[in-house]
Amino acid sequence: MKVTVKILRYDPEKDQRPHYQTYQVDAEPTDWVLDLLERIKGDQDGSLSFRRSCAHGICGSDAMRINGMNRLACKTLLQDLHSHTIVVEPLLGLPIIKDLVVDMEPFFDHYKSVMPYLVNDEQAPMRERLQSPAERERFDDTTKCILCAACTTSCPSFWANGDYIGPAAIVNAHRFIFDSRDRASSERLRILNGQFGVFRCHTIFNCTQACPREIQITKAIGEVKKAIATGNLD
């Protein structure tokens, strides 16, 4: 079948502002959107820029807006879009570097601000820091984050104000706040209790809908709010 792919293009060396460019591509319903982009770049227009790496929904490189929703191009089948016209745009809320490539630096700055690593200065045991299955289960959902930025860039609070820490940073803070081996939960809760922390979330649920890993992001944000309110990490 013939598919029309409309891509928001922007080359800072040539263009004053982003503009749409349309391509006709032969495709199968079982093709991924990433396959179409590869075909366009390989056969029609080598100047098209986009990020991709594993092409299996693990690396999180190819998050983009596809028909108005943040998705991974490598996890989006044409048949699931129910349309012969596909609009592909870069993620919102981050500066465009070129075409579908956005500057992820502001996103990673927020991510780094929540100390997304295990902090435990206690004497390490001989073998390992033990954790029961129930304790591991407590933060299992938020370990699935692949840092694709689909959630943060689907959030109207983040679009409106890039100072907002964003759902991805909160998810990654959650992953360590509720980890029984970690000792820096208080510090992370203090960071998230700030002006552009967790209380800028207005429970819109776009992040939960956008997450390609199906993390219950709004629920995780609610749990962090509750931890701030009660100090209870159970």
């Binding site: 129930a134 029984s180 208080s186 002006q195 709010k225």
Partner: peptide, 20 residues
């Protein structure tokens, strides 16, 4: 599973008004 608690962060302006 043992109960884990941390000292509550100080009531920030945002949190206070969120509760209000």
């Amino acid at each position: 599973m043992r109960t884990r608690t941390v000292p509550q962060p100080a009531m920030s302006f945002e949190y206070t008004l969120w509760i209000f």
